[in-house]
């Protein structure tokens, strides 16, 4: 299983900050599409988001393994 962390608008719209996903062996891009299909209402926010794997920004081609923690990072607005 991998852990998906959600923040800001994504966490609010899905009413959760964390999801467990059976996605070992899948690529980041595949996981992104999977979550978008399951939650169509927030697909556009996911499309605007960056993705981090284990606290580092990652490309879509990366293949996930058990225990990975990924995060959808909606457009940031610190400062």
């Amino acid at each position: 299983m991998i852990t998906l962390l959600l923040f800001a608008e994504l966490a609010e719209r899905l009413n959760t900050k964390e999801m467990q996903i059976d996605a070992s062996g899948k690529s980041l891009k595949e996981v992104k599409e999977m979550v978008k299909e399951q939650h169509e209402g927030i697909a556009h926010v996911i499309d605007q988001s960056m993705i981090a794997v284990n606290e580092e920004y990652a490309e879509g081609t990366e293949v996930l393994k058990d225990g990975d923690v990924i995060a959808f990072i909606p457009p940031v607005s610190g400062g």
């Binding site: 923040f7 800001a8 608008e9 981090a52 920004y57 995060a71 990072i73 909606p74 940031v76 607005s77 610190g78 400062g79």
Partner: peptide
């Protein structure tokens, strides 16, 4: 750079 890469959000 904070506004580009640091995962902080403002509502």
């Amino acid at each position: 750079r904070i506004k580009e890469i640091v995962p902080i959000w403002k509502k």
